[in-house]
Amino acid sequence: MRAAEYVRASSAEEAVGLVAGNPDAAFLGGGTNLVDHLKLGVARPDLLVDVRRLPFGGVEQQDGPDGPVLRIGAGVPNSDLAADPVVRGRLPVLARALLAGASGQIRHQATTGGNLLQRTRCVYFQDVTTPCNKREPGSGCSAAGGYGRYNAILGASETCVATHPSDLAVALAALDAVVVTLGTDGERRVPMADLHRLPEDAPERDTTLAHGELVTAVEVPLTDVARRSTYTKVRDRASYAFALVSVAAALDLDGDTVREVRLAWGGVAHKPWRARRAEEALTGAVLDEAGIEAAVAAELSDAVTDDQTAYKVPMLTGATVQTLLDLAAEETA
């Protein structure tokens, strides 16, 4: 492990200044991903700026310009966010996604901001002895043609087939959340859909944030459709594993007809995949199995699979059908 100086930031501005001014500096939050990467040699910062104790605030309802929002401080642990009464009552997809992630211990440690900025669990990214364009740009991709069970099927590039591992990010994508950041130029508000990026020819960049730009809060609109929402995660074992595929969904029905639907997928791309094409196909139509399957097929028309990832198409289709029909049954119950 490379020797690193440690500074506990006394303000967000100080933290941003320290990291922005040093290309080898990194923010340290809960550390559940970064400390592992320090040990593995995947991350080699020479300065760690600890932001875990900064007063980012807790979880509170606020009036936004477009209605009420829940403002979540970036340092709020995943466990506390999942236990928040407003999250449980009005944003069940958020609570479900958090509770599907990691373990009880890790949820106490992992923060809201850090969860969004965690890095791919692609085995080659985490193994410094193998080529990986995300870890070492230009070195090649070992996952294409290697162990590919977790590889992306949407939006991948020749340089990278990694998937984003966060469950929380998928739920926030479905909820049209906004990420609030602080950079050297001041505060910025980034829609969840624009936070993570596709790999294209720069897979080393997971997000659109600048180096030294710090996530300070996440704002989630408290909409009616979000009240009827949930998260389905399919994995190799029942608990404490990353998603093969996952579905975040919210549904508002008018009788049998879809008034509004939100759909986002995890485990399929370099970013949480908001399935807008599927949403359009479903909106205004009668909700049934055939219709959902057709909507999923429309969204997946650009999917690229191989022997190792072909399973994700039927798995994602089945998980989406089940998730939406369960929500519909809940609504009519």
Binding site: Y6, R8, L28, G31, T32, V35, D36, L48, D50, R52, G104, Q105, I106, H108, Q109
Partner: peptide, 11 residues
């Protein structure tokens, strides 16, 4: 409850 292997003591 908390893991100690992914926590830097200094933090």
């Amino acid at each position: 409850r908390h893991l100690t292997c992914l926590a830097l003591a200094v933090a």
